[in-house]
Design a protein around this nucleic acid. Structure first.
Lengths: 156, 156
DNA sequence: TTGCTCCTCACGTCACGTGAGGTGGC
DNA sequence: TTGCTCCTCACGTCACGTGAGGTGGC
């Protein structure tokens, strides 16, 4: 509890409560009372100092500006802001998922191409086992082994 | 222009303007005047009869009920409804894209597995060309050919 | 004529922003 | 003391829903 987890300096600074309410309100171009109201509505949750003073982070201020944009420019009410913020979070997750699957698909496609390229190279350097045995004189005739590799993209 | 494009019977019925405003309002549990207001705000666009009477489709009614849910249950104003409907459309597109990439990734992974399975089978039936030549007595020594196939998932 | 449609205008209600008013600690 | 903080209460404004009022065609 005493030590905040920190990954790098950057996120710490972004999340750190540094602005008292008058400063945060000025930065977000809002009335201080509006910030208190938003907190009561659960739209923003600033840190608190040991003396119970609200401390807003840089991320808080950006969130406030985003809210400001939605209410003033787009005309949303606070219920709408809440819903949209939730939807945007979920869209961010989806974007990451799309990136993940795209990467996975492309990576595996590259592997498949590599495998086929190698197979084409190697195939010319390999000889069916039957022919090898025949060359050793172990079998009367060298029946060619049928190589059941299917070409990519053809058949089931 | 005269003939509406139709793919199946289903979508036609869904989109066909069949309810006059009093019926649509009753189905959506709304005041008729509210429906007119939503149209003025661009939230819904019913068809019109040749005599300029509004004709709401089943899809229109469902959209109205969705709007009703957002305004009454979630407390959004109309600007919020508009934004959320837009976001939901875009999320639907993203969901489809995720499905597409997932499918593509899984399909290619299955192909890769198939290729590797076949390669493992075939490899035991093949002999490096060098060994074959040695067996024929064409070369003094049978240097094994190094097969540069990399195992999946290991190394670059 | 009745009951629907179309439209515009107006009013009541509610959400939200903001100001006032009173408290307390550097 | 000044200027901040905390809080609650109240008021003005605006969006939205809905009703009224007048029109017109089956």
């Amino acid at each position: 509890m005493a030590a905040r987890r920190r990954k790098r300096d950057e996120p710490l600074d972004q999340e750190r409560g540094v602005f008292m309410i008058s400063v945060a309100a000025e930065l977000a171009e809002m009335h201080p009372q509006t910030l208190r109201m938003y907190e009561a509505r659960g739209l923003i949750t600033p840190k608190r100092s040991p003396k119970n003073t609200r401390l807003y982070s840089q991320a808080d201020v950006e969130r406030l500006r985003r809210i400001q944009q939605m209410t003033n420019e787009e005309g949303l009410n606070l219920a709408g802001v809440e819903t949209v913020l939730k939807l945007e979070r979920s869209m961010e997750r989806m974007r990451r998922e799309i990136a993940r699957f795209r990467e996975r698909a492309e990576r595996v496609e590259r592997m498949l191409e590599e495998v086929e390229r190698v197979r084409d190279t190697v195939k010319s350097e390999l000889v069916p086992y039957g022919a090898y045995e025949a060359a050793l004189g172990r079998t009367p005739e060298a029946k060619p082994v049928r190589v059941p590799i299917r070409r990519r993209g053809k058949g089931a």
